[in-house]
Amino acid sequence: MTRLSADGRHPVRFKLNGRPVEAEAEPRMLLSDFLRQQIGATGTHVGCEHGVCGACTVIVDGMLTRSCLTLAAQVDGCEIQTVEGLAPSPDRLGILQQAFRRNHALQCGFCTAGILMSLDHYLRRHPAPSEADIRDLLSGHLCRCTGYTPIVKAALEAAAELATTTQEKSDA
């Protein structure tokens, strides 16, 4: 049994975007705060801290996760993906990110990280989504700037492009 005492700081280790990271956290520290304040991965944003807005969504062991509803201590030993891990290289955007830029699917960009994580997770598992699928998925995110339709369009475009890319790869 692992018991972490309330007033102590305890080491938390996990893989972030494929790389091991480690820092200390009190048991009550949220994963969102841990990522941002202890690891310095500030791309994941905090918008409501009650699980509604979706800005803080990350992937933990293959599961979409509201990092504001998760303790840092809970993810010890897990694999975590965040927006910082989406681009293939620092100077290049991934297909989904490019589709967002092309379609003006972001304005202030504050909610964007969470939306990208949901879409990245979903499109990997559902290569040919309908518009209704995308709208259902994204109903778990709040965006105040765009009116959503450019986001839906970007997602559908990215899905189509990803399908072509996968096709090409398997042909090759």
Binding site: A41, L93, R101, G109
Partner: peptide
């Protein structure tokens, strides 16, 4: 409608909001 210069940073988690 050119691409926005703001977007690359925002799409990769490198925005600089006050709490960042």
């Amino acid at each position: 409608s050119i691409e926005r210069v703001e977007d690359a940073a925002l799409l990769t988690g490198r925005g600089r909001f006050i709490d960042d």
